[in-house]
C-alpha cells in the first residue's frame, strides 16, 4: 500500500470484540478498557466499534466452542481488510483449561490467521492495553501510516507504563536446582501446561505459558517451591512466537557415589523440608542411590 501524506491526522483505530465461548473474564476486563479512565484504549488512539464492518482490529476471547464457531467466523469475515487479529487470554491461543473437550474446536488459529496473542487468565487490563497497542501499531504499518503511533509518542509507552501491578499472579518460574521430580505440578495443572521428559542426562521440565491458567496451584503443591509465581504480566507476543513462550529447566542426573547408577539429585530445599538442618551423614547419604542408601544405613547396622 502507498504511504499516506505525512501530516494527515491518524484516524482512530477501531476495535471489535468477538466472544468465542469464554468464561467472560477477558470480556469483563476488556469492558474496563472502554469504561475505566486509567485503562482506556483511547490513549493508544483506539476506540471500540459496535459493528464488525467498521472495525480494524478484532479481539477474540474464548476457546471457540463448536456451537459458536460459524457465528464467530461470519463476524470475523465481516471485518474489512487489512485487519489485525488479537487472541485475548490463553483460551483462544491454546484452548486453555477447556482443550480436548468434545464441545471445543479451537485453538482459534485453526480457523483464522492470528497476529498477536495476549496470554493471561484473564490478562490484566494493562496487558490487554499492551496487546492492543501492539496490534494498533501493526495495523498502521499495514495501512502504510508513517507517523509515530500515539502510544510511542506519549511518555508512558506500553511496555513500562506506570507501576507494574503489585503481587500479580504472572508468569511461573522454575528453579531446577530445587526440583525433586515428584511431578505434582504436572498432576494438578488444569491447563496441561506442564510436561516432563526423561532422557539419559536428566529430567527435562517444560511449562508452556500459553496454556497456563496462572492459578499458581503448581506452586502451592510444590513441596520445595521449585515453581514460583512471578509478577511478570507483560507477555503479549506475535503469533510467530506462540510456541516459544516457555519456561524450561533440566534436573541433571548424578551418579551414585557408591555404585555409579544414575539418580535425581536431592535438592537442598527437600533436605530443609525433611530435616531442617543437615549433617555430614545426611550430606553423604544424599549422594547415594536408594539401594546403596538402604545398604549403608539399615543394612549396615544389621551387619
Amino acid at each position: 500500500m502507498e504511504a499516506l501524506p505525512e501530516n494527515d491526522p491518524i484516524p482512530p483505530v477501531r476495535l471489535y470484540r468477538i466472544n468465542a465461548g469464554s468464561c467472560n473474564g477477558c470480556d469483563v476486563e476488556l469492558a474496563t478498557t472502554a469504561s475505566v479512565a486509567r485503562f482506556d484504549v483511547e490513549r493508544w488512539g483506539c476506540r471500540y466499534s459496535e459493528s464488525p464492518a467498521d472495525a480494524d482490529i478484532v479481539l477474540i476471547t474464548g476457546p471457540l466452542t463448536v456451537r459458536v464457531r460459524d457465528k464467530v467466523l461470519r463476524l470475523y469475515g465481516e471485518v474489512s481488510e487489512p485487519k489485525v487479529t488479537v487472541a485475548v487470554g490463553v483460551c483462544p491461543i491454546s484452548g486453555g483449561v477447556f482443550r480436548d473437550s468434545y464441545a471445543v474446536v479451537g485453538p482459534i488459529d485453526r480457523y483464522l490467521p492470528v497476529d498477536i496473542n495476549v496470554p493471561g487468565c484473564p490478562p490484566h487490563p494493562r496487558a490487554l492495553g499492551a496487546g492492543i497497542a501492539k496490534a494498533a501499531t501493526l495495523w498502521r504499518e499495514r495501512c502504510g501510516y508513517t507517523q509515530p503511533s500515539p502510544e510511542l509518542a506519549s511518555p508512558g509507552n506500553y511496555d513500562g507504563d506506570a507501576v507494574a501491578p503489585t503481587g500479580l499472579r504472572g508468569k511461573m518460574r522454575f528453579n531446577a536446582a530445587a526440583c525433586v521430580g515428584c511431578r505434582m505440578c504436572e498432576h494438578v495443572c488444569a491447563g496441561g501446561a506442564i510436561r516432563f521428559d526423561e532422557t539419559d542426562t536428566g529430567l527435562h521440565f517444560t511449562l508452556w505459558h500459553n496454556s497456563c491458567a496462572f492459578c499458581g496451584l503448581c506452586s502451592h503443591y510444590c513441596p520445595t517451591k521449585a515453581l514460583s509465581v512471578t509478577d511478570e504480566w507483560q507477555m503479549s507476543h506475535l503469533q510467530e512466537d506462540k510456541y516459544r513462550l516457555v519456561e524450561q529447566g533440566v534436573v541433571s542426573f548424578v551418579p551414585c557415589t557408591d555404585c555409579g547408577s544414575i539418580l535425581l539429585p536431592v535438592a537442598p530445599e527437600l533436605l530443609r523440608v525433611a530435616y531442617r538442618e543437615t549433617s555430614r551423614e545426611i550430606e553423604r547419604l544424599k549422594t547415594l542411590c536408594p539401594e546403596c542408601r538402604q545398604k549403608q544405613s539399615i543394612g549396615g547396622i544389621r551387619r
Partner: peptide, 25 residues
C-alpha cells in the same frame, strides 16, 4: 449453548486438584 464447553464431561476426566482451577474458569 454457545458457551457450552462440555465442562461436566471435562471434570470427569480431570482429578480433584485440576478441577479446582477448571471450575474457577
Amino acid at each position: 449453548g454457545y458457551v457450552h464447553r462440555g465442562m461436566e464431561h471435562l471434570v470427569m476426566k480431570r482429578n480433584f486438584y485440576q478441577n479446582i482451577t477448571l471450575l474457577e474458569r
